[in-house]
């Protein structure tokens, strides 16, 4: 009897030890990545979080957290949640600023973009993955050019292409449309005209820019689908669509889910395209949260408010990501 309990304790102890070992081993694998992120991302973001509760302005720029002598002289005043209140109540001295409209527009912008990028990327990757497509290596390489150009160059290019007089888009179609500045669309398309033409201009540019990344990820993922699976459903006499629906899409999911979640975050914070092409116009109609935050720093020198803006964006994206994760179970371990 006594020996039996002792045995059980020993077994329990060794099981706990094994668990601890597994934990230690896992975290050892993660440690290098964790360290890099800690230095480059975590520290500055904590600092930004702190800034968001202060009245940080130009005069406080000489504040240096590693130099105690500057703390008293240049430290900003702590004002609690005032910055957040001002943002959410739209109590900022900026023309055309309305927080809920801004948030709604940013959301629409990100969702529409990601849907277009993913469907184009996956679709074209599948076409190129088909049996003996002539010149597929050539197509694949050329299709990534939009991604290979610095985003800022592409943005400048597209801005010039939408120019009313010399822009390639107007010249190509022989039309005379002021894509970026006209607040009211010159032609009315039911269901689409509630957004200014500038929205469609930046959407076209960003889709051009964004789909190749999704194509590359999908191309990689398509290779992980065992050929035998297609052969198996072939025997069952499945149609082409049934094959895609039952084999391709479910098996693309594990690789596409992270790309989609990250794509949503990148697009939500896509600064270059909006800032360089439409500049948030006309009348702030295509402003997204990041471009607004940038203007708070560049034009109004309101560092504290801009930091609060960044923190608000962070929490919005965190909530959206947690919901996506709940739905897609992306963080589950492989064997779970």
């Amino acid at each position: 009897m006594a020996i039996a309990t002792q045995d059980a304790t020993v077994r329990r102890r060794s099981r706990r030890k094994a668990r601890l070992q597994e934990n230690a081993r896992a975290w050892a694998y993660i440690l290098p990545a964790g360290l890099v992120m800690l230095v480059i991302s975590v520290f500055p973001q904590m600092f930004q979080l702190w800034m968001s509760f202060t009245d940080f302005r130009v005069a406080n720029l000489r504040f240096n957290i590693f130099d105690p002598e500057t703390w008293d002289r240049f430290g900003p005043a702590w004002i609690g949640i005032e910055n957040y209140v001002r943002i959410i109540e739209s109590d900022l001295n900026i023309p055309n600023y309305n927080f809920s409209r801004l948030l709604f527009f940013t959301f629409v912008w990100a969702v529409v973009n990601v849907i277009l990028h993913v469907s184009l990327g996956v679709g074209i990757a599948m076409v190129l993955n088909g049996e003996r497509v002539i010149g597929r290596r050539f197509y694949r390489a050329l299709f990534i050019i939009p991604w290979a150009l610095p985003a800022y160059i592409s943005a400048l290019t597209w801005r010039n292409m939408f120019d009313p007089t010399f822009g390639a888009v107007n010249q190509l179609f022989g039309i005379d449309v002021d894509w970026l500045n006209d607040p009211i669309p010159p032609f009315d398309i039911p269901g689409l005209s509630w957004l200014p033409l500038a929205f469609y201009a930046v959407l076209i540019a960003n889709t051009w820019l964004g789909w190749p990344f999704m194509m590359v990820v999908a191309t990689g993922a398509l290779q992980s689908i065992p050929k035998e699976l297609y052969e198996a459903v072939d025997i069952d006499g499945a149609t082409k669509w049934q094959k895609h629906w039952n084999v391709t899409f479910p098996l693309l999911r594990p690789a596409m889910v992270p790309a989609i979640m990250l794509g949503f975050i990148w697009t939500f914070n896509q600064f270059n395209v909006i800032f360089f092409i439409s500049e948030g116009g006309p009348l702030g109609a295509t402003e997204i949260l990041v471009t607004q935050a940038y203007k708070l720093v560049a034009e109004n020198q309101l560092y504290g408010v801009a930091s609060a803006f960044a923190v608000v964006v962070f929490f919005i994206l965190l909530v959206i990501t947690l919901i996506q994760n709940r739905v897609t179970r992306a963080t589950e371990a492989a064997d779970a």
Binding site: N269, F271, A293, V297, A306, A310, V313, F314, T321
Partner: peptide, 10 residues
């Protein structure tokens, strides 16, 4: 989560 915060002030 670490890529969610815009880098305005970081």
């Amino acid at each position: 989560a670490l890529i969610m915060m815009p880098a305005t002030g970081v």
